[in-house]
Each structure stands twice: as structure tokens, then as C-alpha cells.
Computed example of a mutant assay.
Amino acid sequence: MWTNDEPSSVAGLPRLASGALMALAEARGRLAAGVMPVAPISLGLGEAVGGMLAGDVVAMADLPARTLALRDGWAVAAEAVAGASPYAPILLASQPVWVEAGDDLPPGTDAVLGQEAIPDPEAPPGRIRVVEEAPATEGTRGAGADLSRGQNMAAAGTRLAPSRILGLAACGIARVDVRRPMVRLVATGPAGAAVCAALAAFIAADGGIAVQTRQPGRHADAVAEAILGSPADAVFVIGGTGFGRTDVSAAALTLAGTVTAHGVALRPGETAGFGTAGGRPVLLVPGRPDAALASYLTLGRPLLGALAGTRATDRRIAPLLRKIVSTLGMSELVFVQCRPEGIEPLGSAEIPLHRLALADAAVLVPPEREGYVEGTSVEIIPL
């Protein structure tokens, strides 16, 4: 089981009162304050997939460079075969040029007829019958139709998806500059291993690289040493964020650096915290799975985005299929399942694991609202 990250009192640490919780909006701003995007690295296309592009990728030439045939057939001038049919064939003085898909169209041609359009291509000159017509550009792709010189193929701050590789490679682009922040995950107890594995997957999907350290145990000194350990752009400490006897994450961060906040007005995830150590941001992530995921989506992902130089994406809006009830004064993350007709809330705070496993998005209810009525269109956070 994970550690109980609920607030409680313990010698040397204050009890976490609701009034001491930092507002989520303030926590986001202070966590990312002063954070600059990591240095870009040049990678081959295969290695760069998943990274955030450090600059716009622009086509350096038209693609294709010249008009191409899209199918095998006869290259003709459309005007010369206009009106051709089996009942009114057009006779050609010479056999047209046969082209294969991908060939340049010969000068003076602008369409490609199928093989059956000329039943007897070996007939004497002047007796070669064309029995089908073709409009101009039929069976062809014009110069620059795929990409035009100077066209932005992928914008800075967007994730390089596998679907982009075809276009980039076709343009002769073999390498791109990407940013891939490295996040060190430190689990303070055995139960944190499962949460670490899940967060590592989310970090990779969001363009980062997750590196897991050996579990330092429940000793503040050991956790502090792990925080200051191997190089990383940020550190996430998993578990031990509460105020119980074995919860040492905040104390460890105090030893390693500075605690900026311990306790955020977020449900689930009240015991999250953050600070800095060794010149790097450190996020304290509760060990309970729903609280860990909520903390990552609302604090960890924005921090990773700041390190990666992530570009803002369009908001996704969907209607609620059931109402959401929330508590005033707390930002509440409600996990939902997306359906064709809208989104279905899966529960409130402290959602059980078997329900959390069904989630594919979440809704963040701001602290000034008591929830949303059924049918309200709300912004969703994709998982």
C-alpha cells in the first residue's frame, strides 16, 4: 500500500491546515518561475520522435519538384483527348509516352490516362485510338502540391509525432533540434515504484525522459542525497509528502535545498509540495495513485512543458453527461471517461484504483466553483 499522505501532525512539522494550502494557480506560477527551456539537441528523425521541436521545421524546396504521375498510364495533353469515348474515339498521330507512378510528366502533357484508354497502342501512326478523355491534372500531382518551399511543416514547441516523419524525410530532412527534459524520479518507499512507472510513461508521452533512482528508503538524509544525485533538469519525489512519522519528503527537500510550498489547495493532492535543490525544481508528489496523477497533471506537466518549451495547444471542450460537485476554495481534478456524446465523471476525490484505470481525461474545477451541472461544456485535460 502507499503511504497515507493525508494531513496529520508530527514532531517538527506543522499540521497542514486548510488555510495554509497554496492556491493551485499560485503554485503553478511559482513552480515554473525562472524555469527556462533546456538546451536543444540535434537528433536523427527516429531518435527525435516524442521530443519537443526547438524551432520551426521549414520545407527547403517544393515537393514534388516537378509534376509527377500518380499512376501507371499514358501521359497526354488533356486538351488533345477532350471528348474521346468508345463511340467517338480520337486518333493520335503518334503513340503517347507510357509513365509509371512517380515518373516526371513529359513536357507538353498534363494528364495520365489508364492503360485501357488506348486499346491498340501499337497501331500505325494516325490510327492510334483514344477512347477515354481525362481532365487536366487527372492522375498527376503538381509541383509543390505536397509541400511548397518555405512552408512550415512542424512548429516549434510541438511534439514530433511519428506521422511527421514521412513529410520530413521526403524533404530530405534527416535531423531536427528537439528538447527532451530529463526528470529524475525518487520513490521514498516500495509502493512508490508503481507510481514511478506510471509517471515515467506520462513524462515520456509529454516529451521528456524519466530516470528512476534506487529507492533511498524512509530516511531524510538518504532522500536528500537522492534529490541532489545524478544530473537532471527536474526531480519528482514520490510518496512521503504527508505529515506522518515516516513521511520525510519535505524534510529531505529542506536538507537538500528550499521548500517553497508544502500543501496545495488541490483535491486529490493536498499534500503536494515543491521547491528547489541544486538549482533544479523539485516537485513532491503524493504516493496515492489518484493524488499522484492529479499532481502530475496540474503541476508536473506544466513544469515539464516549461522545460521543453511546449507550445500552448487548443483547448478541448466537451459536455458533461453527469453533474460534478466540488468544494469551494479547492481546485478539484475530476477524472472522466470520454464518450462520443460527452464526458462521464468517474467519481470525486479519492477515486478507487479500478475507476481511475478507466479514465482517459480529467476536468479541473476552479476553487471559486461548486461544480458544474449536467450538460455544461467544460475544458478537458487529456491523459
Rank of each mutant, 00 (worst) to 15 (best):
A170V: 00
S163I: 02
G167S: 02
G172N: 01
G114E: 12
S163H: 08
Q151C: 08
R180D: 00
S94T: 12
R149N: 08
P106G: 12
S94P: 08
W98S: 11
A161R: 13
R175K: 11
L91V: 06
P162V: 03
R141T: 14
D104S: 12
V99E: 14
A156C: 06
D104I: 06
L147E: 06
T140A: 10
A156G: 01
G172Y: 05
R129D: 06
G172H: 00
D146T: 09
I128C: 14
R180N: 01
Q95G: 06
R129P: 10
Q151S: 05
A145T: 12
G157I: 02
A154K: 02
P124W: 05
G126C: 06
I128Q: 11
R127W: 03
P119C: 00
I165D: 03
I173V: 02
R184T: 12
V112W: 02
A143C: 10
E122H: 13
A123K: 00
L92M: 13
A154N: 01
E116G: 10
L147C: 08
P125R: 07
W98N: 10
A169G: 03
T109A: 10
I173E: 07
G108E: 08
G108N: 01
R127E: 14
R179M: 09
A155G: 03
D177K: 09
V97R: 14
V112L: 00
G157K: 07
D110M: 08
A143T: 13
P121A: 03
L160S: 02
V130W: 02
E133I: 07
V97T: 13
R184I: 09
S94M: 11
E122D: 08
V178Q: 03
A154C: 09
V112R: 00
V183N: 15
D110V: 08
T140M: 11
R141K: 07
R164I: 08
E138L: 15
R164N: 04
D104H: 14
D103R: 05
A174R: 04
S163D: 07
M182I: 12
R179Q: 05
L147K: 09
N152R: 14
G139R: 13
S163K: 04
E132H: 14
Q115W: 11
D177S: 12
S94K: 15
L185C: 15
R141D: 11
R175V: 13
